[in-house]
Amino acid sequence: MAHAFVASLQSEWLKKKGSLASWMVVTGAFFTPTIIIIARLVYHERLPALYASDGFWRLLWKNAWESMAIFLLPLGVMLATSLIAQLEYKNNTWKQLHTTPLPFTVIFFSKFTVIAAMMLQFLILFNLGIWLAGVIPQIIIPGVPWPGAIPYDYFLREDVFYFIDCLPIIALQYLLSLHYRNFLVSIGCGFIFWIGALGTLSWKYGFLFPYTYCMFNYLKAGVETKAAVPPVNIHGMAIGYFLIFTVAGYYLYIKKKDKG
């Protein structure tokens, strides 16, 4: 089984090569850092004071994650997950995949692992983008001081939290995109859930909604908003929802009567 899983994982990784989902990971990761670099080069006169301030990297981190945590990450995860499953529907390849000597369990989890790996890939590239957003203006603009040491442990901890908080979105979008042939169903549902998450941020029970956790993780950092930052462990809840959606998705996939 382990051997089959590795083989399946290799094949799934190859499939995403050059696909829209893989391009989304790269462009999505560098989108916000690029905007920050451009903005800093335009307003370069403010840079010496900014780079000399304490907590430069934390501020940069917060700026970079602002649009990412609320908009780009949930929507990007939703799209990338749906696109990965859609690769099989669009190319009419489920039937070919399901007639290979692979257990259905291996197919389900190897695809899932690739999506999770893409999420990790995104986080690594986004961290690289944030670093570049700090370094490039300092190199280009004369007289800007070096911003000091990067708080690696803080970055790493937050990355882990964002990864965990995205897992329920990945699992539910994966369930939907495996179950429904029509791409619009998973994207449409995801979009409605995302709007729902935005709408429930200020509700005291908003934390019950599984698409809110990335947003709450950003907002808990002390941003002044009307959002009701929940008094519960949102990461634990994210893992709980992730497990429920994964088991449900797996059950529906295994029980599907028509496999291509």
Partner: peptide, 22 residues
């Protein structure tokens, strides 16, 4: 089975490599 089942964004060799791994 029926119509071709191929990954359109990949070359012939890449399509076969996917299944060679499996």
């Amino acid at each position: 089975i029926e119509s071709p089942s191929l990954y359109g964004h990949l070359s012939a060799k890449e399509n076969l490599t996917i299944f060679q791994k499996i």
